[in-house]
Design a protein around this nucleic acid. Structure first.
Length: 632
DNA sequence: GGTTAGGGTTAG
């Protein structure tokens, strides 16, 4: 039972909110705004923590606020520009001909994720606060306004796309820490991605490195060394190993090459310089997200449409040690974007309309199909149809049928290709013609030569594909050679059999390959385009049954190669890739183990409506999620 | 309810 205290049990405070262009010097006001700039809380030279926050609203006025508090927790929990804040009891005063907001007695704040369509969940340390359906509307309206008027701090940068000489914000896990000297601290961190350049290695005294030595060793190529200076040292020293951090305005530099170092590979230095310019600082992300509980309450309350006062702290009683452990446990998947979305419990998702986007954390209870080859399909990017990958026996039938037709000698040996004809001896004198495409009138070595084949059977095509750059099955028609049939691949290249969409392709004859000859650009995309073919994509199509303890949800995965980091186009012809895939599924959903021992998966999912004749159904699909690199 | 900081990159 989640405690909900309804109106009537407590006196309801009513609040009015002043637009930011109507603030008067000397007044104490309540305001809403979208965060334009912020400095994460840091120790001031006085007795308090300080956070500087600039906000804007629909009036287009900006207000910079100086927020002070002895208690770190009571300052707003802002993660990024574009977050929405609500301040109660903010004093307005004048400074250098401009007004500014300052905390005053009883100041309190709520912060909300600013992304459109995400659940409206307040972040706050307040034990009691009001939140009405009007508040909900205000937040949603500010999100819409902010989406058009506040530029975010740019794409989220991960260690895998970090460059030299830049300032950026990093979300990461702290795996090691060492005091280097009086004025700097080393933080060893990683974010689940692999940096493109090796990190510099900061030297420290033996025995001064805190953290699990095995884990630091295991992650050594994935972690980077950050040197933290001056005013950030005290906070850095207090950080717990294993905590998740947001480091703002982290600076990268190329390490100067000194004559002593033989290595000629560029190494990257990571510095968190002194000062708080541009919001430079460190924020510890919460170990556990109590807002999940609040959200469950909220979705109930919205239905009742009543004003409610929450007793926030009681919700903490529902957080078990198991939940804490779960948050500290790393996920088997990595999010490639939107890291700031907060986790939503599956039970809450099941109650909501589509379309929405969510971040979830759940275990893979079951998946379908269980047989790998059944999960690989062909998808048309144009008409979005899905079809099975043709079975070899079906291909052979089409090829056998075509082999009974007579090749037209008039279509052999043109300026585009040289032709060779063979007659088989044991099979009713079947004729096979191979047309070798020339490069600017000259025949090349097999490895770079594209060939077309008439009358070939599957085994012959397969053998030829091992020797030549690519094989196109064709047949004679009145004017020119044409693609044999889109029921068979239009191109066999290496281990990949390329198919075209029957509905969307408007076939052109083979002489159209002339446009590609000069550049010898025999890529599947170029060949398909020259021949009027819309190529089909190989995709993994699977249903995951996910379970986070609050509910279960069936979600679809449709993926070319991003999620598993295995190309769906090659897996059917590669034993190695099939083994990799089996290992991944074995790891995600280990047979014979209890679900408690399964790894957690962190995923983004989007919900969407699907209508059939009878009813409307909400479906869910995974996106922007990949299997963690250290598990592959 | 006094101080802190009062946005606009270090220079290791």
């Amino acid at each position: 039972m989640i405690p909900i205290y309804l109106a009537g049990y407590y006196p309801i405070a009513s609040y009015t909110y002043t637009p930011l262009n109507q603030l008067k010097h000397g007044s104490v006001v309540n305001v809403y705004g979208a965060v334009k700039f912020f400095k994460p809380p840091y120790r001031s030279r006085g007795t308090d923590y300080c956070s500087v926050v600039s906000i804007m609203d629909q009036s287009n006025a900006k207000l910079t606020c100086m927020l002070f508090s002895v208690n770190l927790d009571t300052l707003p929990v802002i993660y990024k520009i574009g977050d929405i804040v609500r301040f109660h009891r903010l004093k307005i005063q004048q400074y250098k001909n401009e007004i500014q907001g300052v905390t005053t007695v009883g100041f309190s704040s709520l912060t909300f994720e600013g992304t459109l369509g995400t659940p409206v969940i307040p972040r706050t340390s307040s034990k009691i606060y009001t939140f009405t359906s009007d508040d909900q509307k205000t937040v949603e309206a500010l999100r819409v306004w902010a989406a058009h008027h506040i530029s975010s701090s740019g794409a989220l940068i991960k260690l895998s796309d970090v460059k030299a000489m830049q300032f950026f914000d990093l979300t990461c896990e702290l795996v090691g820490k060492a005091e280097v000297d009086g004025s700097s601290v080393l933080l060893k961190v990683w974010d689940g991605t692999k940096p493109p350049f090796p990190s510099w290695k900061v030297l420290f005294e033996d025995g001064s490195l805190e953290g699990d030595a095995d884990r630091i060793n295991q992650l050594q190529n994935l972690t980077v060394d950050i040197l933290v200076y001056d005013n950030h040292v005290a906070l850095a020293k207090s950080l717990q190993i294993g905590s998740f951090l947001r480091i703002y305005s982290l600076h990268t530099k190329i390490q100067p090459i000194t004559p002593k170092k033989q290595s000629n590979i560029a190494h990257l230095e990571f510095h968190l310089h002194g000062g708080t310019c541009y919001g430079r600082g460190i924020k510890v992300l919460p170990e556990n997200n109590y807002s999940d509980f609040i959200y469950t309450c909220l979705s109930f309350i919205q239905n009742c449409n009543v004003v409610v006062i929450f007793l926030f702290h009681v919700a903490q009683d529902f957080v078990s040690p198991c939940d804490l452990e779960r948050c500290q446990q790393l996920s088997a998947t990595v999010l490639t974007d939107h890291q700031y979305l907060e986790t939503t419990p599956l039970s809450a998702i099941l109650k909501r309309d589509a379309p929405q986007q969510y971040r979830i954390r759940a275990k893979l209870r079951n998946y379908e199909p269980q047989k790998l080859y059944q999960s690989v399909k062909l998808h048309c990017p144009k008409c979005h149809s899905l079809q099975e990958v043709p079975h070899e026996s079906d291909l052979e039938l089409v090829l056998q049928e075509a082999a009974t037709e007579q090749p037209d000698p008039k279509l052999q040996n043109t300026s585009l290709y040289n032709s060779e004809v063979w007659t088989t001896q044991n099979q009713q004198e079947r004729k096979i013609v191979i047309h070798f495409i020339k490069n600017d009138g000259i025949l090349q070595v097999p490895e770079v030569t594209l060939i077309m084949i008439e009358g070939g059977l599957l085994s012959e095509i397969y053998q030829l594909s091992k020797k030549f750059k690519g094989v196109i099955p064709v047949k004679s028609s009145q004017e020119d050679l044409i693609v044999l049939d889109l029921a068979v691949p239009f191109l066999i290249q290496g281990k990949t059999w390329h198919y075209g969409c029957k509905q969307c392709s408007k076939l052109k004859t083979m002489q159209n390959l002339n446009s590609l000859v000069k550049e010898a650009s025999w890529t599947p995309v170029c060949i398909a385009e020259a021949l009027g073919i819309v190529p089909l994509q190989y995709v993994f199509v699977m249903t995951f049954t996910l379970d986070d303890g609050t509910g279960t949800l069936k979600v679809y995965l449709m993926d070319c190669e991003k999620f598993f980091q295995i190309p769906a186009s090659e897996i059917l012809n590669s034993d190695d890739l099939q083994k990799n895939m089996e290992m991944i599924m074995y790891m995600l959903c280990p047979p014979g183990k209890k679900i408690g021992e399964y790894p957690w998966l962190e995923c983004f999912i989007k919900s969407y409506n699907v209508r059939n004749e009878v009813e409307q159904e909400i479906c869910y699909r995974i996106f922007d999620t990949v299997i963690a690199e250290d598990l592959i």
